[in-house]
Write a protein that binds this DNA or RNA. Structure first.
Length: 437
DNA sequence: TCTGGGGTCCTAGGACCC
DNA sequence: TCTGGGGTCCTAGGACCC
């Protein structure tokens, strides 16, 4: 394995990681004081637990448990639908509070942040632990939720710290104490090390994070790729991951998927779902002024067998009108009559900035301009009156089923949630097609 | 967890070129 | 035709995250 260049940042640094406790449930309790002290569950719309308050956790409820079981285990639980808009507001305010302490705040997910505290002791006239504690207190006072915090020499160690003592924990891991926190920590609990790498490391007798951290550099370079070499440095207190302050402004890919119950064998309905995925993905792409050069579509059957297709587009676009024909053709190639489908999905990838799009001699520029005008009008209408005001007719059959679900709409376009996925999307072994748009 | 819905980065290997 | 070396770009797929 070749050694990749890897920069270790000047150290020691003081990195803080903050993780809100049972975030969704805590927000509900903050907004509805009568729920404080009671077991609160969010996720009503999905039928499984998205987040559980600590009162609910105390009764043995964990994420993913079906609400049917919740009622058996904990009959007095208050079950509410997830209200992403409210959670996003709490999130924004939480990050604002953090920025009062340091400009170097990374919004890592809706309920997590990294803050670079290096050098701030002087202006705060106190140690890093005091700064962290003030942050916790401010958030508690102003937002009415609790957060857990870790402070250490690197992001990976700070994460271990914030997880060490939940809820409302504050854990400092100075360099001399690192081994105390790693020696009992299974290596797969380390941020960035998953079950696969843990299984690999086990073959070398590495079970704990400390055993991994103690391995010599030759071993690490010989057997592990760059991401794990980086984690190894971070565990040893050498910071390589910077705190990224810039907010996310672009995407490599944009995907939209939708699971529906019960599964459907109705071709029109299934295609309509796909069509709606495409429209939503395009809306997001246009919002970020991006155009796609590839379109991936896939269908998942009741038996979790995926079929998919990838298409290379002759011209970048973010307009469904350009993509419906390829979508239809691709769909016909992978759709099997008689199968029952539970999910459709669309991925726009190979995204390029809108303005760099160049037309070829063969493109009908007048037509393209016209569509560009139509869609900016559509985007404006949607902005003003709600996301699904204007549809393509091919997406309409989805309404037949979704209307009575309450049309809860998509989650806000914020990254993250509290999901811990197992290996999510099986690889599709996609055939690639070139299509003219 | 018998099953959400989003994302990212890295690497090996092939295609193609000189 | 065979042989050899070296570079770049692109892609599929793996692994991981919230």
């Amino acid at each position: 394995m070749t050694t990749q260049p890897l920069t270790i940042r000047s150290w020691p640094r003081a990195i803080l990681h903050l993780d809100a406790d049972a975030f969704f449930a805590s927000c509900e309790q903050a907004v509805h004081p009568e729920l404080r002290g009671r077991p609160v569950i969010t996720g009503k719309e999905r039928g499984i637990v998205a987040a559980a308050s600590y009162e609910a956790k105390a009764k043995g409820i964990t994420r993913g448990v079906s609400l049917y079981d919740v009622k058996k285990i904990c009959p007095d639980a208050v079950i509410v639908p997830s209200d992403y808009e409210t959670y996003s507001l709490f999130s924004v305010r939480m990050f604002e509070i953090l920025r009062r302490f340091s400009p170097d705040v990374e919004e890592y997910s809706i309920d997590e942040a990294f803050v670079d505290l290096t050098g701030l002791r002087r202006s705060f006239h106190g140690p890093y632990g005091m700064i962290a504690k003030k942050m916790q207190e401010t958030i508690g006072t102003e937002l009415g939720i609790t957060v857990s915090v870790g402070v250490s020499l690197s992001k990976v160690l700070a994460k271990i710290g914030s997880k060490h003592n939940k809820p409302h924990g504050l854990t400092l891991i100075p360099g001399r104490d690192i081994h105390l926190y790693l020696e009992k920590l299974p290596v797969e609990k380390v941020w960035g090390i998953g079950p696969n790498t843990a299984a690999f490391l086990r073959k070398f007798g590495i079970i704990t994070a400390l055993q991994f951290a103690k391995k010599d550099e030759q071993f690490i370079q010989k057997h592990l790729s760059k991401p794990y070499q980086e984690i190894w440095h971070e565990l040893n207190g050498r910071s390589v991951y910077p705190v990224v302050t810039e907010s996310k402004s672009s995407y490599q890919s944009i995907s939209k998927t939708k699971t529906f119950t019960p599964p459907s064998g109705d071709e029109t309905f299934v295609f309509a779902q796909l069509s709606k995925n495409l429209e939503n993905a395009c809306i997001k792409a246009r919002r970020y002024k991006l155009s796609a050069t590839r379109l991936i579509l896939f269908l998942r059957t009741q038996e979790f067998r995926d079929a998919g297709l990838e298409m290379k587009l002759s011209r970048p676009t973010a307009y469904p009108i350009d993509l419906f024909k390829p979508l239809r053709e691709g769909f016909e190639q992978i759709y099997r009559a008689g199968s029952r489908y539970r999910q459709t999905g669309v991925v726009l990838s190979g995204l390029v900035p809108e303005e760099t799009v160049q037309y070829t001699l063969f493109d009908d520029t007048a037509k393209i301009e016209k569509f560009s005008k139509i869609y900016s009008a559509v985007d404006k209408v949607s902005e003003k009156f709600g996301k699904y005001t204007v549809y393509h007719a091919s997406s309409l059959p989805t309404k037949l089923q979704t209307q009575h679900e309450g049309e809860r709409g998509d989650a806000p376009q914020r990254k993250g949630e509290l999901f811990k996925g197992e290996n999510k999307r099986q690889r599709l072994g996609l055939p690639v097609l070139k299509v003219k748009v």
